[in-house]
């Protein structure tokens, strides 16, 4: 189960979610995408959008100010 990775460190809104959405279009339902971001607002943005789409979410704070979100496409 190799999850695809997307590095969004240093990226601000709206780019973080736009890129996430772009990557999510490329993968098939059931596959996973791991997103790494260091912007609090992007985390909210991504979580809200994915939740609206009904995607599975798993969030972990990796270090100080770095969040890792694992999205399962449905």
């Amino acid at each position: 189960m190799g999850a695809k990775k997307l590095d969004l460190l240093g990226e601000v809104c709206p780019f973080s979610l736009l890129k996430t959405r772009q990557e999510l279009e490329k993968i098939k339902p059931g596959e996973k995408l791991t997103v790494e971001t260091d912007f609090n607002q992007s985390v909210r943005n991504i979580l809200k959008w994915c939740d609206n789409q009904g995607y599975g979410l798993d969030i972990a704070e990796k270090g100080s100010g770095v969040w890792q979100i694992t999205i399962t496409k449905k």
Partner: peptide, 11 residues
């Protein structure tokens, strides 16, 4: 984000 997020993400 007031007007950007509604346009881009319907949020």
């Amino acid at each position: 984000a007031i007007c950007r997020d509604p346009f881009l993400f319907n949020d």
